[in-house]
Design a protein around this nucleic acid. Structure first.
Lengths: 339, 339
DNA sequence: TCATGTGATGTAACCGGTTTCTATACAATG
DNA sequence: CATTGTATAGAAACCGGTTACATCACATGA
């Protein structure tokens, strides 16, 4: 329904040169006389000629596209990494294709397939549910199969069952920052709520939690660590349980596995009119600044995560990618909830 | 660095047929003998042959890609529409390319160009800063130029300077729902904060605000309507001003131009220990459920916005698109902040 | 029996670029 | 002057599909 666009041949014809010459003028990687160059550039401008990226992809066998598969772009963590990756990719001539898997392995597979058919040069895989307790082996196989053909990088996710390069926030370091801060504030009784055992990122945090309590010679009270999940509702539930089972022996500071959990806990405390806890979240999402009180939280190295991932993918075109696991340190943003 | 994939010719050779036949088997739009079909399908399965979408795009002159340009995927409104659009597009064989413009017209132009070169079949343009007070005419021209070549649809944005089809939430209706609800709750003194005059979506809401007050024969007190902006900070500022200039004549219910503004206003009221206002937001973002109190808000017809937009774009391939402006009614989600 | 229609398949052109190979003109070198 | 090198440019193949057109075998109907 729209007019057909002009091609390299149209330019060539009007300039009385061959398409090869026009191609060379554009690429600028081959000697072309100044006169011809000018003639071609003038025509390109005159018609606002835009090279057809699809045709170029086909001949050059490089699509200049990178796929991004994540559970849900609504999650501020994924959104932030994506934005940084996109910004960076653009400067490198790459385009990102975002795929929301909505935590469905079926969708994940479908997206994997589409991306592969579209000849993406690499796939960024975030927060997939692949971990040692993952129920569906089929999915891992699917991914494994793709990895053999397309470079895949995991962001903040590890796969015990599969060799795959990854880039992650050093979450253990994040927990260390939190506990150091809380101790400096005078806290000696610290709890941890949310998350699920078996999920890599939770396991790492819990492990770091215990180690750092020990480092400061603080008691690791078992009932002060409550698994529940990752959303606001779970946070509320966890806090409810915390209050119930520790009625007479409560921690003074509580770390949430992520910001949402803290929001939930805060809500419960507000309802119960208990405003005597310090809270720390994880992810430093916008929520932390919009809640009352504003929440101290660990901020991921978003920019590095995004850029390094894209870089590794681009590099993997020429260098064989080692299945290395890169960790980047986060930092702590201190707000009202811990002062 | 990865192995080359197999092509339709590989399949054809091993099946002792021509590539045309394989193509026909896959397309299934042409009679092929059962025997040949089976032979080909078996080989496709054996090698897990995946057609090269780039090559297909080139010959068929249809990329099956749609571009999406929006200011910032972090904004829950855009994210939600995107998710719905993507979900739907996938079922139709289309892939979306998300572009964050970060409110920079430079980036907008760059993305427009990239998308055009990639031969996208259409562009979904959300929340662009194009309106009657828009300072940069160059940008409009850029967009205008693209529109001549690629179908563009605006989502929740209108352009006075440019004929372009659009799909929008009926925001006036949203305001009507709010005011009807507040009146039913007994409110007779209603304020409106946030937004900016000159921005289409604000103008529409303000206009509807006044009309609906009139409908209920309520006073439209000038100082109860305060422009400020769109984020939490602006909301706080607006509320501060509201309290200052209306010290002895305050509204009892306050409508925010969006949810963020309400969050800001709530924060201020919390600081000032003034918990006697009813608040209503707009967008029904997750924030509304996570704040204290939970906020009554107008929910956009996300699913319809996403699906209808994709549908229109697909249809525009065969039918010439009228520059029509479609409106879809939102609904009101009632929460603690107005009871 | 011959003309015609139909099903199944192959051939080759095409999509819009890039790139290898080749050719030409001209300058520099011996 | 013959030889070699270099700058410039074209011809043609190629990327991996799709499809218009051609072909052929066989069935049908006059």
């Amino acid at each position: 329904m729209k007019q057909k666009s002009i091609t390299i041949y149209d330019i060539a014809r009007e300039a009385n040169v061959s398409s090869a010459t026009v191609s060379r003028v554009i690429a600028g990687n081959y000697p072309v006389s100044e006169k011809t160059k000018k003639k071609v550039f003038d025509l390109i401008e005159k018609y606002d000629y835009q090279p057809n990226a699809v045709a170029r992809s086909l001949t050059k066998k490089e699509s200049k596209m990178i796929g991004v598969i994540l559970p849900d772009i609504t999650n501020p963590f994924f959104a932030q990494v994506f934005i940084e990756a996109e910004k960076y990719a653009l400067t490198k001539g790459y385009t990102l294709i975002l795929c929301n898997s909505m935590n469905s392995s079926e969708l994940e597979s479908k997206h994997l397939r589409v991306l592969s058919e579209r000849q993406v040069e690499g796939i960024i895989f975030m927060g997939g549910r692949i971990n040692k307790t993952h129920p569906k082996v089929s999915e891992i196989n699917e991914l494994k199969y793709v990895i053999e053909k397309i470079p895949v990088i995991l962001v903040n996710g590890r796969m015990e069952t599969l060799e795959c390069p990854s880039i992650s926030t050093n979450e253990a370091k994040g927990i260390e920052l939190i506990i150091d801060h809380l101790v400096k504030q005078g806290h000696t009784m610290i709890g941890l709520i949310g998350g699920m055992t078996g999920i890599t990122t939770t396991d790492i945090k819990v492990e770091a939690f215990r180690q750092n309590l020990e480092k400061h010679q603080l008691a690791a009270v078992d009932s002060w660590q409550i698994y529940s999940g990752y959303d606001v509702k779970r946070g509320k539930e966890a806090m409810e349980e915390m209050l119930k089972i520790n009625k007479h022996n409560l921690p003074t500071a509580i770390i949430g596995i992520n910001d949402l959990v803290v929001i939930g806990a805060l809500k419960l405390c507000h309802q119960k009119k208990m405003n005597n806890f310090s809270f720390v979240g994880f992810d430093d999402s916008e929520l932390t600044q919009n809640s009352i009180p504003e929440i101290t939280s660990v901020s991921h190295p978003y920019k590095e995560l995004g850029e390094k991932t894209v870089d590794m993918l681009i590099k993997s075109k020429t260098t064989d990618m080692k299945a290395e696991n890169l960790f980047i340190d986060p930092h702590l943003v201190i707000r009202e909830s811990t002062i």
